[in-house]
Structure formats: C-alpha cells, structure tokens
Simulated assay, not measured.
Amino acid sequence: MIVNKSEVIIGRVILVLVLILTLIPLANMFSAALQPADENPTGLTWPSDPQWGNFAQAFETGHVFQLMGSSLFIVAFVVPISLVIATLAGYALGNLRMKGGRFVFVFLLLGLTIPFEALIIPLYYQIQSLGLLNTQWAIILPLIGLYMPFSVIWMRAHFVGVPPELSEAARVDGATTLQEFMRIQLPLARPALSALAILLFLWTWNQFLLPVVLVADPLNRTVAGALTFFQGQYSSSIPLLNAGALLIIVPTIIVFVVFQRQFIQALLQGAVKG
C-alpha cells in the first residue's frame, strides 16, 4: 500500500499531539511535586527553589519500599501463572483445534464483556468464604481469573497464525505433542508472551479497585491500591501526594521503556499475520 506524503505528515502531527497530551499531566505532577510541602500548587510552573527532598520524604514516610515489595510479590504470582495457563489453553484452542474449542472461545469472549466492577461484590463474599480476605492471595487469585479471558484469546491469536506445516513436519519426524510445543511452538511464541507479560505486569501493578475492597492493610496492597494510604498520610500536602504518585508510576514507565521493542514486535507480528 502506497502512503502519500500528506498522510505521513498528518500521522506524525497526530502522534506528536498525543505525545504532548500524554506528557503534560506527568510534567504537571513533576512540577507540583517539587513545590514546598506546605504550598498548594496551581498550574504548570517550575518552582524557584525545587524541593527534591519531597521524593525522599514521600518514599520514607509513605512506606514505598514495603508497598513495592507487596506489589512485586503479587506480580510474581499473577504474571507467571497467567502466562503458563494462557499459553497452554491458547495452544489447545489455536493449534490442536480441540473438540468444543469454539464454545470455549465464545465463552471467553463473553468473559471480556463483563464489567470489572460488577464482579467485586461476588468476589468479596467468595474470598471471605475461602478465608483469604485481607491477604495478598485475595488479590492474586481473582486477578489470575479476571485476566484469563484476554490472555487466552491473545495466545490463541498467535497459535492460529502459526503455519500448520510446522506441526505436520514435526509429527512426520516423530515428535510428540509436548515435544512440538516445547521445541517449535514455544520459541515462536516469545514475542506474544513478552507482550502479554508486559501487559499483565502493568495491569497488576496499577490495579486499584480489588486491593482497596479486599485488603484492609494498605501495606499488603499493590502500590496503586495504596494511593488511599498516601492520601491519608499527605491529605494536606499536594506536593507530597504528587511525589508519592510519581514514585508509583516510575517502575511501570521503566518496564515499558526497557521492553518496548518486544511489545512492538508482538503487535507487528500479529498485524502481519492478520
């Protein structure tokens, strides 16, 4: 497809505008975080005397190290378990074409249509009946289930696009289903797995509603779910609130910047296959 020069220019202008609109809130938060703690900043203005110590104070007083440890504990279970289950299920639906696979696929699509908020009350009573309320497992187990429809559909889309000739050649050479999966399908799925891992990490790290409802102790929540804890600590200090929020955002930005190539590669791979 040939793209003329005007379309290229318009596309770049739109991307620049989107980038500016994305960075303005972060710049506003950053400038507000550097204001004196007892002031109420208004607008995007650079302070005459930047208070870099606000970040250290927010980190120490807001127990950011403990909160990040809690988030990493939750992520360490949610992401690997979700990847394993989604990869196996996606392979079964996309490559093995198992009996009843269409019904399962439609069932997963329906799962994507259910509003997240509609499940909070049933989840609360279910977690309470399991005796897991106010523990980190009250966040881990529901998130694995809630992410599963998207994760399985994502991996199925990859395996559907793998040429069936590869499987047929492996079977002719005497490979079992497990050997074919481990030696051929899994290496080809690395871009899709990497992109899915990034998405699951970002969604888990930024999860707010579940931790607030299911866990009473802020130090056992995700860092995003502990924003209410920050608000309680710094309810009268807007600069410290912004400093704490930026400390929470930084890890997600770092993860995306480091793994952006894998993420883009997976998206382009899916576009080419489509």
Score class of each variant (00 low, 15 high):
Val64Asn: 13
Pro142Trp: 03
Gln136Arg: 12
Pro25Trp: 06
Val212Phe: 12
Phe65His: 13
Ala266Lys: 03
Gly131Thr: 05
Val160Ala: 07
Val257Asp: 11
Ser235Phe: 09
Ala76Glu: 05
Ala271Tyr: 14
Ala89His: 04
Thr87Arg: 13
Phe259Ala: 14
Thr204Phe: 01
Gly232Lys: 08
Ile114Val: 15
Phe55Thr: 08
Val160Phe: 11
Ala224Lys: 04
Leu210Val: 05
Val64Lys: 11
Ala195Lys: 03
Ile248Trp: 00
Val8Phe: 01
Phe259Ile: 13
Leu109Thr: 07
Ile85Pro: 04
Ala216Met: 06
Ile139Ala: 12
Phe65Lys: 14
Phe229His: 14
Thr45Val: 15
Val79Gly: 03
Thr222Met: 11
Leu186Ala: 10
Ile10His: 03
Leu186Asn: 04
Pro115His: 13
Leu146Val: 03
Glu117Tyr: 04
Asn206Pro: 01
Leu188Phe: 06
Pro142Met: 07
Ser236Val: 05
Met155Thr: 02
Pro218Trp: 09
Phe150His: 01
Asn28Thr: 14
Phe256Arg: 10
Ala197Asn: 00
Lys273Val: 12
Tyr234His: 08
Pro251Phe: 04
Phe105Tyr: 12
Ala56Arg: 10
Arg97Trp: 06
Gly69Trp: 04
Pro191Tyr: 05
Ala271Leu: 13
Leu214Asp: 03
Ile140Thr: 06
Gln231Glu: 11
Ser167Lys: 03
Met148Asp: 01
Gln179Asp: 09
Leu83Glu: 08
Phe107Pro: 12
Gly225Phe: 03
Glu7Arg: 10
Pro239Trp: 00
Leu146Ile: 08
Val258Leu: 06
Ser71His: 03
Gln136Ile: 06
Gln262Ser: 12
Trp137Glu: 00
Leu241Pro: 00
